[in-house]
């Protein structure tokens, strides 16, 4: 079974981003970039499927500027076999990415596509579901366990209030939640090997996809500040304040 993993280059999760002074966007100058954490979990899951002998090949794909080849190489160092870079400088919205991925899935005839449930920059949580809809595939979102069972996929999903298990017909799309697995670290020899793994570059045009969006960013701003309150000296004082000042208990 061929597994396709889609990954995204995002701001490192340790970086606290700020809006630009003019509100035109987020200040990303000289900020450390990394593989989106949920995508890292997706790569790990695909590599584990290969190690179990379920997956025959793991193909990693990313769309964006030239720099996102770094993240493809990271995924290759984690164990993916080859990479596809859909190169474009255009601002990509989830629907456009889903269309690009659909074109790649058609070409590659992947049986399983694994993506992170959301990227930690846009926090959209859309691409996997959109890809599944466009490809007419089943989806297992927010997965905490994935088991391949013949022609079906059993996915345990993290839902409000607990866990849900669904059975999906293959081919299917899975999006990862935090507790699906704990990604490995790439070893130095594997990082070196990853540099020699094949990486194809295609363009949206070649895939026949229009990446324009009708959603525009008007402005960005910092969230409303919450002021620090007071320190209380004792539990008694705390209860008194909650009862008589805040009146919440």
């Amino acid at each position: 079974m061929k597994v396709l993993v889609a990954v995204k280059r995002v701001v490192d999760y340790n970086v606290k981003v700020r809006p630009k002074a003019d509100g035109s966007g987020v200040d990303l100058a000289n900020v450390k970039m990394a593989l989106n954490p949920f995508c890292e979990i997706a790569v790990e899951e695909a590599v584990r499927l290969k190690e179990k002998g379920v997956a025959t090949e793991v193909v990693v794909v990313s769309a964006g500027g030239k720099a996102c080849q770094e993240q493809i190489r990271t995924a290759l160092a984690l164990g993916a076999d080859r990479g596809i870079h859909v190169e474009t400088e255009a601002e990509l919205q989830p629907l456009a990415v889903a269309k690009l991925l659909k074109a790649v899935v058609d070409k590659e005839q992947a049986q399983l596509v694994i993506l992170g449930k959301q990227s930690i920059d846009g926090d959209n949580n859309q691409t996997g579901q959109m890809l599944a809809a466009l490809a007419g595939m089943a989806q297992g979102t927010f997965a905490s366990e994935v088991v391949v069972d013949g022609g079906n996929l059993k996915v345990t999903r993290e839902i409000d209030g607990g866990l849900q298990t669904v059975s999906l017909k293959l081919p299917a799309v899975v999006t990862t939640d935090l507790r699906l697995n704990e990604p490995r670290y790439a070893s130095l020899p594997n990082i070196m090997k990853a540099k020699k793994k094949p990486l194809d570059v295609v363009t949206p045009d070649a895939l026949g996809v229009n990446v324009e969006s009708k959603l525009t960013l008007v402005k960005v701003e910092p969230p409303a500040e919450r002021k620090a309150g007071i320190k209380v000296e004792s539990v008694e004082q705390l209860v008194d304040k909650l009862k008589n000042e805040a009146k919440v208990i």
């Binding site: 926090d123 949580n125 579901q129 959109m130 989806q139 979102t141 959603l215």
Partner: peptide
Amino acid sequence: TTSGKNFMPRVAALLDVAQISE
């Protein structure tokens, strides 16, 4: 909710429009 987040992007994709999340 996890339910809305699950099916709404499919709705948007089928209608060929963007989704505005959360």
